[in-house]
Each structure stands twice: as C-alpha cells, then as structure tokens.
Amino acid sequence: MSARKSERIMNLTICLLMARRFVEREQIRQLVEGYHGLSDAAFERTFERDKEELRTLGVPIETGSNSALFPDEVGYRIRRTDFELPPLEFDAAETAALGLASTVWEQARLADATVRAVAKLRAAGVEPDASRAAALEASVGAAEPAFEPLWQALLARTRVRFTYHGVVRVVEPWTLAYRRGAWYLVAFDTTRGERRLFKVTRISDAPAPVGRPGAYEIPALDLAESLAALEPAPATAEALLAIADAAAPDLRRRATPAAAAAAHTPAGGAPPGYGLYRWPYAEDRDAAGELAAHGADVVVLAPPALRDAVIAHLRAVAEGAAGAAPERPEGQR
C-alpha cells in the first residue's frame, strides 16, 4: 500500500467535494500536492487511475463544464448530496439488530463489506451493539467457489458464462437465494431463452463476466415461487403404514391416523405396539428409501408395489449387495 497514493486520493476527494464549480484538470494538478512534479503524461495517467479508483469506492465524480459557451472545457466535482450517507436514525432495538447483523456473514469478503457498512453507520453517529450476540448466532456462509463472481455479476447486472452439468451457459443473474445451507441462482438462460434455477455448488468452473455491466433489467420476482422446484414434490399416492408407537415423528407429521378397520389388506393389520397411518407420498421420489430408513419401526401395508420396493431395498442392506438404484430423496435435485 502506498501512503502517498492514499494521501493524494484523499486530497483529490476533498478538493472536488469542496469545489462549488467544476474544477478543470490543470487546476486540479495545481491544487492537489500529490500531482506536483509529474510530467504531463504521468499526470494524465495518474489522474485517470485515481478517478477510476474513487468510482470503484462508490465516490460519485461528476463531469461537466462551467461555461455554456465553451462546453469542451471539462471539469470535475463531487456533489455533497451524492457523496454523503443521508441522515439515518435508529432506535435502540434497531441498533441492536444492526450489531447482530454485523456478525452474520461467514464469507470473508462480505463480512468485510458488512464491517465497512457498520463502520459507516458508526461514523454517522449510530452505535450498533453486538452484545446480544452471546445467545444468538445467525450465520450465513458461502463456501461455493462460484458464489463470489455471481454476487459481483448480480450487483453489476453483468451476464456471466459458466459450466453447469457439463454444459456451457450464458445467463443473466436475477437473484441469489440461500436455502438450507446452499446457494441457488435464479437466472435467465440466454441460450435456452428461459428462466432457470441453478445450484451454485454444481457450477464446475469460475463464472466469467460476458459484456458490460448494466446489460439487462431484473424483473420483479417472487422468491418463494422461484424456489418452488426445491420443495418436496406434491403427493401423488397414499400408503397405509404401521408405525411403532413414538417412532418416526417425521413420517407421522405428514400422516393421518387410520381406523383399524382400514387395515383389511392382503398384508394384514398393524402388529401390537404399532399404530396405523395414512401417509401421502410422491411416487417419483425415493419413498422406499425414506421408509426403509426406519427399519422395523415402519411397516408398509399398502400399496403392494411400495411394500415390495421397501422389501427389496431392505434385502439389499441385509445382503450388503448392490441392487436397483433408488430415486433421489425429497427436496434434492
């Protein structure tokens, strides 16, 4: 890091911020000490780089002319209203929430960005307080290597190219969503001309920007609707299960108790110590695996096809042999 460079950029910022009119290049060269002693070419180069650096920091530099007669005489200034954080007031509960928010990100660069944002709030006189964090620890991670370039592309509205399931795609990022510990990208796939959902961890290379920032508009999106494909498939069938008392709460939660009279199936009724339940399930998912996971605590009475699938699944475990491949579990894709 160069202290001289930081000093020069700070003085340039103050100079442009205090100016009431556009300041022309030659004036800037004289007013800002850091530009003294540079050749014409070196000054031009340094000044262009400094302006670019300020723009990336979010300092809005305006270009214009003071003269209607000579509009080619270009100068620069920073409008205070564009530069300064507008007045913000937070009550005690809100500042506590902001303090807690400053500890949420696990991803290093976004944790830094949050720290910078909170430092700005403190510089504006707001005092976020993280003391409540002792009993509450929210955290959002982003370990996926593709996350960072997608975040940047989304904020800048730049199209990106990446490889997904072995296929190269160029997409317009619309939304990133964090769900159950994984990041998803909702994007418009320009190759296919449709909206698609991508699981970020399955992107196999580093997303690369394509074209310039601000290249597309992001339509209003219903996040829940965009992620609906990740929810469990709707039930298409109903099974009759015998579940051991107090066992398999995850199954019982979605099931309804069935009358004993319902148990006149070819497979017989419920064994002693078991209750009968009607359990809705999706046939194209791995219902057999889900049921087999409960071992002897869950017995399928009907339908026969599901009962046979569970028996085959259990035989594979009992015999330690490979067999037919089950479908993916619920919620996965």
């Binding site: 920091l57 979010g58 564009d82 954080l85 507008p86 960005a113 944002a117 700005k120 510089a123 504006a124």
Partner: peptide
C-alpha cells in the same frame, strides 16, 4: 459525514 454505502456494502448488510 461518511460516504454513502456501496451497493456491495448495502447488499451485504
């Protein structure tokens, strides 16, 4: 007064 939030900072927060 401090500089405005950058988009990155505002979104992270």
């Amino acid at each position: 007064r401090p500089l405005r939030f950058t988009l990155d900072e505002a979104m992270a927060l």
